[in-house]
Amino acid sequence: MSQTMRFSIYRYNPETDSKPYMQDYTIEVHAGMMLRDALLKIKAEDESFVFRHSCGEGVCGSDGLNINGTNGLACITPIAVLKQPVEVRPLPGLPVIRDLVVDMEQFYHQYRSIKPYLTVHDPEPEEEYRQSPEDRDKLDGLYECILCASCSTSCPSFWWNPDKFRGPAALLQAYRFIADSRDQSTAQRLDELEGPYRLFRCHSIMNCTNVCPKGLNPTKAIGEIKKIMLKHYV
């Protein structure tokens, strides 16, 4: 049995609108529908409406949105749990390109800055890089990040200083490589994060952990980086 549901969607087209506005839509929904399905239905009715999406199952990280005030992925948010009218806005703090599409450059810049790849100074091994199962376990809860930006864009420190503070997503990845037994750049990685901004703008308010659609814990990773830094310098 189908029923209707009300949505209030952030709209902004810089070519035609002088400022953003909220547009109301009422659509027919069915049981088990995710927010992404509802947005696709809205787009079918009003093709001027734009949003990013791809895999539809919480793997690609394209449809990070602000849903009723909380960041999350539209494709794994069941509409049944949402209060009406469902307010859908772009991820906060990033420049809006159009409607729900934001410019992620600042976010990617911070991600690139932490050098998200293994650095090895030893000669390359003949076959493969070896890692014990115990060392591999240390990467659990870190490598699963899909870079949807839900965490960084819910972090006030990232809102105020997106150009200087790395943000929870990039810091989680920084720790992913610091914790990796195969990586040989720990000292450089720690040194790169030193100073008042890059790491230490985090005040552990845990907004990032609250919203992570993959259930990861950037605050804990940031705490681990601080601990390792402390051991390294003392």
Binding site: L193, E194, G195, P196, R198, F200, M229
Partner: peptide
């Protein structure tokens, strides 16, 4: 001690 450490890790530790 560099100023970066003083304004980062050391401030946090203090």
């Amino acid at each position: 001690m560099s100023w970066r450490a003083a304004s980062g890790l050391h401030a946090w530790l203090a």
